[in-house]
């Protein structure tokens, strides 16, 4: 898990990144780009949630609160104070990180998984209710509109870059930057001493603490880092979709979607949540024709994967896993290692 990727793994990652970056140049379909943008946003969300839950073992079910806080903070501040979203979005990430610290403090004192889940879920529900109640500012469920788009700029070779609803490509690249940035930062963290500490804490808090690992420090770090990423993604979402309601960015179904993506892809793996996000976002859209039944299919898929593939779809890549370094047992990256049993 903590070894660097083998050359084949690096090649595979480079190919995927390249494909992602080249896609809008060869495929101009606005709808396809929109789907990939959403996949990247929710993929990054799932990666950030999985960092706290899958790697550090903090079973939080209220991460959509940070998405909503980031979205509403950036939307309201940029709209009401006429500050560019390029500034309000990262600040929204910081605000979400601070909110993460506030939630983490009670979570630190609780070791029972169901209680952590309830506290975090309750926090998200409080945020949703507050945003619904303060109608004069947020417009509640009537929807907050008039959110400014990102300001355009001019690039040396490419020329003018404009952000508007008709032109997806600039948004695509901002989303790709956020997605790749989140994944890169997560991989760096997981494959560092911090990652070792997080997994140790997940597997046994008592043992980790007995080895001198400061539980408080690592839990606060992972919770706030994860909340920062999700808050930033929420801010991007606000300036991309340009319409917010408390139920769209703070509804429990958003959290369930992200949990579903992570479970289906593979909880506690680096690649699983990304795979799950792309499969579900694009899959749910592809099933639009069957109407409400798609949520039924979606639910059945989660049940099937949890029952028969508890390690997630990423287990399908097992043959590739050791070489590509994507799975849970990604330590087997060197040529002298035998295949991982099981």
């Amino acid at each position: 898990m903590f070894d660097p990727l083998a050359p084949q793994g690096r090649l595979a990652v480079a190919a995927l990144v390249l494909a992602l970056l080249v896609l809008p140049l060869v495929w101009h379909d606005t709808y396809v780009l929109h789907l990939v943008i959403l996949s990247m946003i929710f993929g990054a969300f799932a990666v950030a949630w999985n960092l706290a839950t899958g790697f550090a073992g903090l079973k939080t079910f209220g991460h959509h609160a940070f998405f909503g806080i980031g979205a509403y903070f950036s939307a309201l501040v940029s709209k009401d104070f006429e500050i560019t979203p390029w500034i309000t979005a990262p600040v929204a990430g910081l605000v979400a990180a601070c909110a993460g610290l506030v939630v983490a403090l009670p979570v630190l004192r609780i070791r029972s998984v169901p209680h952590v889940a309830m506290v975090t879920l309750g926090f998200a529900e409080i945020v949703r209710v507050l945003l619904t109640v303060f109608r004069e500012t947020t417009r509640g469920e009537m929807g907050l509109w008039g959110i400014p788009a990102f300001d355009g700029f001019t690039l040396p070779v490419i020329g003018e870059v404009v952000f508007n609803a008709a032109e997806k490509v600039p948004y695509y690249y901002v989303a790709a930057l956020l997605f790749l940035g989140t994944v890169y930062a997560t991989v760096r963290m997981v494959k560092s001493p911090v990652g070792l500490a997080l997994v140790a804490i997940r597997d046994s808090q008592d043992a980790a603490e007995s080895l001198g690992i400061n539980l408080t420090r690592y839990k606060l770090l992972v919770f706030s880092a994860s909340a920062f990423a999700v808050g930033l993604l929420g801010a991007f979402y606000a300036h991309y979709i340009l319409l917010l309601t408390p139920s769209s960015v703070l509804g429990l179904d958003l959290m369930i979607l992200v949990i579903g993506m992570t479970l289906i892809g593979g909880v506690g793996t680096l690649f699983g949540p990304i795979l799950g996000a792309f499969v579900l976002t694009i899959g749910v859209e592809a099933m639009r024709g069957v109407g409400e039944y798609r949520m039924l299919i979606y639910g059945a898929l989660i049940v099937i994967v949890v029952m028969f593939m508890p390690r997630g779809l990423v287990a399908l890549l097992d043959g590739l896993g050791p070489r590509f370094g994507f799975g849970r047992g990604v330590r087997l990256a060197t040529s002298d290692d035998a295949p991982r049993p099981g």
Binding site: F2, L196, D203, S204, A207, A208, L211, G212
Partner: peptide, 24 residues
């Protein structure tokens, strides 16, 4: 016993170094 179940034997022992060493 409270092993770090998903870590290897070596990684389990490496975890003792988190508070004592800087790099993996």
């Amino acid at each position: 016993t409270q092993p770090f179940a998903e870590l290897t034997v070596e990684e389990n022992v490496m975890a003792a170094g988190i508070a004592r060493h800087r790099t993996l």
